[in-house]
Design a protein around this nucleic acid. Sequence first.
DNA 1: TTGAAAGCGCTAACAC
DNA 2: GTGTTAGCGCTTTCAA
Lengths: 354, 354
Amino acid sequence: MSRSSHPDATALQPERSRLSPRPVKDMSIDDVAAQAGVSVATVSRVLNGHSNVRAETRDKVLAAVESTGYRVNELARNLRTAESRLLLTMVPNFGNPFYAEIVRGIDSVARQHGYFMLLCDTGADPGRERSYFEMLRRRRADGAICLDPAAAQQALSEELNTLPWVACCEFDADVGVPYVGIDNYRAAGDAVMHLLARGHTRIALINSGDGYLYAQQRERGYLDALHNAGVDPDPRWQVHLDSLDYEAGASAAAILMAQAEPPTAIFTVSDTLAIGVVKGLRSVGKRVPDDVAVVGFDDISLAAQIDPPLTTIAQPMRELGETAARLLLKRLANRSANVPGVLLPHRLVVRGSA
Amino acid sequence: MSRSSHPDATALQPERSRLSPRPVKDMSIDDVAAQAGVSVATVSRVLNGHSNVRAETRDKVLAAVESTGYRVNELARNLRTAESRLLLTMVPNFGNPFYAEIVRGIDSVARQHGYFMLLCDTGADPGRERSYFEMLRRRRADGAICLDPAAAQQALSEELNTLPWVACCEFDADVGVPYVGIDNYRAAGDAVMHLLARGHTRIALINSGDGYLYAQQRERGYLDALHNAGVDPDPRWQVHLDSLDYEAGASAAAILMAQAEPPTAIFTVSDTLAIGVVKGLRSVGKRVPDDVAVVGFDDISLAAQIDPPLTTIAQPMRELGETAARLLLKRLANRSANVPGVLLPHRLVVRGSA
DNA sequence: TTGAAAGCGCTAACAC
DNA sequence: GTGTTAGCGCTTTCAA
């Protein structure tokens, strides 16, 4: 039986008033039962909001709970009900502000359904990632949402398929794991077409490592958009970075501009990178957007704050998180439910940088 | 007899790799014991690395674990050992990059000691905060680290004292809860003295809400530093904000500059605010630092990236987190241990903005 | 409407 | 070194 279908037990356990002293030892359900003069079964029923309890009995139990300062031991409850009510969220790097809003979306849906969310920083390390999936196998968590790159690929070769998890942002539609994300190919195309429409043809791409599926998809979107416009992309303008942080973007931009024929526009697969690019450009004396236009990706809250404000592809981060959580919950509720993959819309946000 | 050892079981599960068949049903320690021809106690000993097991027996058990695909059920283990091995970390807002590195520090120490860390976003809401403390009482978590403002104050009036938690960054030394933080009073003084040394006397303070202890401490540091220099602080230059985000800083700066006698320097209690201030200043045509100098607080990684790079007070964020985790672990190991309060050093980092 | 009792899967005495 | 067994604190049949 789902606990969330009943009134929250918290409501039945009011904060202890200052008048009633703290229990000397930990109270168990037996103590409450003894105190109320009923059986433990009845206490349990009251705690879980079952209706088949006489009002008078319920009051006795509640009074006993109050006077003993009893708190349910969820360790015991979890064992009995065989669920931990914990959801894992795996992110490659929670210092990256892109994830913050997604995680909020997940958290809010999880809480609404009586789950807690455990945020796990994997450092995009498959080893750590696996250690978190291991938590699922050990019943420490009921399910997981993975924003990490490696998992989707590993799911092909391992029995990760059978575990209750969903992919968010990073996904492989062929792998049989429920997912939510955006159409990275088209989003990248939109960014490039915006730059083309502004008259740019020497358009660089600053990408993350190839380990990321989205990196591959956005690269194809970039290349195809260029081809469709009859522009021949210069391979020297495509750079892959291991890191998404500001510094990485800054130095990549400086290196790009040191070329004989430097690009006049830079498309970057993340806003954090783009912010670094703007700084890097400035450090070599280039103005944005006059000398070089910059387009980012994600639309983190910072994007509108920098100088110049960043033109970028907005991802619906909150919805991404909420949707991921809903898919997972659906899967948890019914293990054999056919949970779909879903693609959410992106949006080009034009600001000052391009 | 375990069904997965039957050849047919594999054939019935085509989606799994044929190399390592997974169990059809969940294996328990009894299944492993049966498979290995030993008792459950022996299996438990092997699993927990006890030394008093014959090597030969150990191998038998390990082989049985392998062949059954057994995973320990930590729900059961937790009930038996009466610990969840989960630590809570409560932050008012995990979108704020200031917390990211602290949380990393906590996480790394926790993991080293076999604990998982659950990150909780309280939104600085005492209600949500209490619901997390409630998790402690219900044995869902073993201990907590709180970076939230309200807890310290509440600890005075409630029996929060008796719960296993430590305060980080936001603390009240009088409250009897172990804590780690910096000397906010002196740090603010250092920032103001730097500005004074640069010749400023019209120095504004953009502070957060009074609910934050650090806000009060930094305000006193600011006021006293000014007094000590014989400067009379203009009350119109002290603003309190509900929010720490970029927008809040931007509009506060604009309003400050609209005064008849606007300040020539702004000290801000957080880098995020300071970044907003720089943008707000720019939007009303003021140059930084030529027209107005800006000093931030925290030294988040972004601080060095913006234009101009931010002068700020650096907090040792990683160490703050690591120390908090160690204090908590110490308290958990020995409930009656006398866990101290600790103050870590801050540092003025001079960059371009002041 | 209530109670008695059987476990959930594990660890740790205690016995051999 | 290894096995037997008694719980950990709860939920949930099943009977009354």
